[in-house]
Amino acid sequence: MTLAEVSKSFGDNLVLDRIDLEIDRGSAVVVAGPSGSGKSTMLRCINGLEAIDEGTIRFDGRAVHSTGREIYGIRAEIGMVFQQFNLFPHMTVLENITLAPLEVEHASKDEGRRRALRLLERVGIPEKADDSPADLSGGQQQRVAIARALAVEPKLMLFDEPTSALDPEMIREVLDVMRDLAREGMTMIVVTHEMGFAREVCDRIVFIDEGRIVEQGTPDEFFNQTRSDRAKEFVDKIIHH
């Protein structure tokens, strides 16, 4: 996954300013930064939910922002988990998970169901298969959302503040699932304010401010040998609050 010189503005507001970023297969990267810094926008550009003005984003050698139908294939290889879960309320938990396998990969109903149940097992709520998303707690909903994103067997997972809308006691269960994923070697880009997770799980922290990558490094480098003033300020605030 490579981003080269990627820029994007909303009107006069430059949200991404010549972003260069490379993410290796199997690595887990946390993107941190103050709100409004462009972290989420960057994530949404990576799977083409948001158009870019300049630069290129390549995934597995293919340009994400080329024209044509190729984007659908690329998106099926990139899973995304949203802050607001975005489960489909008119479907059961199981149907949420089997939708993409059935519609995109044309898997059989049995195969889809088997895969969904396996994934529910993996995120720890196999008994919720036939429930409606509205009957689940926030943490459970987010775990279903993770299972749904995993159902097409993506090569890359994007997490857009996956725990920001959760009650504190539910954050743990979602982070645990994400930690297991990282340990299994899933390539992940995680936008989060959970610095405990960043320190413990990720290989690299990318710090973004005002649309620019200000600093990046291993968690140890980032927390203990912070170079830029902006990142120092941020780390201070996060750690001493």
């Binding site: 139908r69 659908y72 294939g73 099926a76 990139i78 995304m80 489909f88 519609e103 995109v104």
Partner: peptide
């Protein structure tokens, strides 16, 4: 968010509309 979730799963726009 519903539309984005469907698109992010690889569904095309017409399929997202229908499903």
């Amino acid at each position: 968010g519903q539309i984005e979730a469907a698109l992010s799963l690889g569904l095309s726009y017409p399929r997202t509309m229908r499903r």
